[in-house]
Simulated assay, not measured.
Amino acid sequence: MKKLKIQDVISVGIYTTIYFLIVFLCMMGLRFTIPAFNSILIPGVTALFAGIVYLLMLNRVPRFGAITIMGSVMGLFFLVSGHFPLSFVPNIICAVLADLIQYKTAINKKLRTYLSYIVFSYGLTGPVLPLWFMKNAYVDSLVARGKDAAYIESVFAPVTTFSFYLCIFSVIIGGIAGMMLGRTLYNKHFSKVEDRSYDSTASEF
Rank of each mutant, 00 (worst) to 15 (best):
K192D: 10
I168R: 10
T160R: 11
A149I: 06
Y117N: 07
V193W: 14
I92H: 03
E153Q: 13
N136M: 10
L100K: 05
W132V: 06
P127H: 09
T160A: 08
G146P: 00
A157V: 01
Y117C: 09
S154R: 00
A95Q: 04
V193K: 13
R145I: 00
G82R: 06
S170Y: 06
T184N: 02
K135D: 06
D199Y: 14
L129F: 14
L181M: 13
Q102N: 04
D195Y: 06
V193C: 01
L97C: 05
F84T: 05
L166E: 02
F77I: 11
G126V: 09
Y165M: 11
K147C: 04
F78R: 12
L185T: 11
Y138G: 03
F120I: 08
W132D: 03
W132I: 04
T105H: 00
G178L: 07
Y165D: 01
A177L: 15
P130S: 04
S191L: 01
G146W: 09
L115G: 00
V171P: 09
A149G: 03
K192S: 13
L185N: 08
L181K: 13
S163F: 03
G82L: 00
L181F: 15
D195N: 14
P127E: 00
F88Q: 03
C94H: 12
M180W: 09
T184R: 07
K109V: 14
P127Q: 03
G182C: 07
D195L: 12
D99L: 11
G82F: 02
P158L: 14
T125Y: 03
K147E: 08
T105A: 11
S170V: 05
F77P: 01
G82Q: 01
R183L: 05
K135V: 02
V159I: 14
L166K: 01
V171G: 06
F133R: 04
S197W: 15
S191N: 04
